[in-house]
Amino acid sequence: MLVYIGRRLVGMVPILLVVAVVIFMFLHLIPGDPARLIAGTEASLQDVENVRQSLGLDLPIWKQFWLFFSRAIQGDFGMSYRTHQPVFAMISERFWPTLELAFWSMIWAIVAGLALGVVAATRRGKWADNLAMFGSVTGISMPSFWLGLLLIELFAVQLGWLPSGGSGGFKYVILPAITLGSGVAAVIARFTRNSLLETLREDYVRTARAKGARERVVVWSHALRNALIPVVTMTGLQFGFLLGGSVVVEAVFTWPGMGRLLIDAVNFRDYPVIQAEMLLFALEFMVINMVVDVLYAVLNPQIRLDR
């Protein structure tokens, strides 16, 4: 197991390196001069040139990359073009709110998704199944920003129960987490239903029924446990969806996370921030995928990772 984890971690390095090169190259080869942007529209040619030199933008591109890379592995992602603060500090401030939002979204997605999936599978073909599955497709098709606005309209504007945005406590995270998690809940519901329907056909389920176990025990403790193995993998992979989706949801709820920082950075061509954020998102995503693979092996003794 440890060998496997080690190998996966080593395998991540070249991909991350290529990701870093790709992000760096593209952001620096595109039209639009960041030196001019920072110096402002009023700046003289000399001012722009000074800014360019102080940021190292006049160096050859490979030298710029080497500078960026050697500093990045020490946690130094340079200064933001926009706020002139260290990028690392800006992002670490925004990192936890995004993780918090992703965490609660996942909790919501798992609870709602599993419940819907089990209800649908145990009432196969009945109206509850049809309703749950139609709800699931709707959840997948629903634009998260619209769902967010509807929830704000209902719970913040009309009922006044929850805040419409910002952060500051658990009640602030409820609406964004529901908004972000619903798409994932829909996918989990579908997957759980199909997986459970397959396991319910297995011989050991028939044996359990034959020996007189109650239906609830058969479903929840015999079938569901085995049906959940593929669901875990899929749920983990959906975490990437949450990370991406958080960009949109954070914009709707003015949540102070990495997503909003990224949008501001893109609009301002704040290269250091864009680079660092993209690298961090990619790293997070890869680590999560690895954890999911390991978890899968732990849950399913038929899989041996060491080989």
Binding site: V18, A265, F281
Partner: peptide
Amino acid sequence: RACDVLFAFPGILLAIAIIAILG
């Protein structure tokens, strides 16, 4: 491997990265 690199950006982030490049 090229796919791995593209898959390294979760969800909409790849699209945002491209918008960051192209405008």
